[in-house]
Design a protein around this nucleic acid. Structure first.
Lengths: 162, 162
DNA sequence: CTTGAAAACACGACTCG
DNA sequence: CGAGTCGTGTTTTCAAG
């Protein structure tokens, strides 16, 4: 039961375009049964969606950088994420514990583009920045260890998504 | 031309399971024309693949953390990424400029799990760790600004993927 | 969860600018 | 050479058991 859902999720994280036919064969179930389970996983929010994985190099965004930010004036309201959301170069924004307030992940075209985006970040959110340039990426976005334990089912009770 | 490919990529990064019929309608082209373009984008490596986006909370991995590592003994060969690859809790590994050697992105079940993984990282790669816990994630993995400029086409010449 | 059947889709061959 | 049409095999999707 649980094990089948795990197998489905594991397969779809590797290849999100698998047909239900192939998926059924992979997990040893009928096509409709698999279809039902996938729909339930989607509705419960376990599967949030499907996305094409694009090469950032091909998109002319070969430079990745982490930018730690903290407010220039900590007494003012902290709405940095909203203020920065309009910058398409920001891939992710994490609120973090530690010395910094947020950690941003940037994808830019090169050093000049990085400089421009950093200036926009500083002026848009009134923050100071500390940048860490990524030299290479040994691996990224690996498939997680899939474990749908019963305890987790409780947490999802009544939570609807989609 | 270029613009159509950009529209295709933008659409597929948002919904990777779009049918060619829907995709054709979205970009204003015939079905087979879109089909051809998608296949070319896949073969050129612009589209690297498709993946289901899974909720880490639903997978019982609600805690995200960044771990900066540097070797305990910098004179020894640096093969940390390979030594750490067996840990499924490591989502990504970035080689970075700056004080640290690598930046890891972890997805774990909770503080106890984090402690265990940190110990495994230290012993597996003989490194010291500096951990930044993520408190919340305002946004993550946003769709990049898509621009397939001609200059980029040259870089892809002769590069085959898939 | 399975079966089965209808609609939609994928994907090649073919034709037209 | 890229775009559109056609036709067949596959896949999706729903209803019933």
């Amino acid at each position: 039961m649980e094990e089948t859902d795990q197998a489905i999720i594991a397969a779809l994280t590797v290849d999100g375009r698998l047909s239900y036919t192939d998926l059924a064969e992979k997990v040893g179930l009928s096509v409709s049964a698999v279809h039902q389970r996938v729909r339930r996983l989607e509705q419960r929010g376990v599967i949030k969606g499907y996305a094409a994985q694009v090469s950032f190099e091909a998109l002319d965004l070969p430079l990745t950088a982490f930018v730690a930010i903290r407010p220039f004036d900590p007494s003012q309201p902290d709405d940095a994420p909203e203020r920065l959301a309009h910058l398409p170069e920001i891939d992710s924004c994490y609120s973090v514990a530690g010395e910094d307030f947020y950690l941003l992940l940037l994808r830019v075209a090169g050093p000049a583009d990085l400089e421009r985006v950093l200036q926009e970040i500083r002026t848009s959110a009134n923050v100071t920045t500390r940048t860490t340039v990524v030299l290479s990426t040994p691996y990224e976005h690996r498939a997680p260890k899939v474990t749908l334990d019963p305890a987790n089912q409780h947490r999802l009770r009544g939570v609807s998504a989609e």
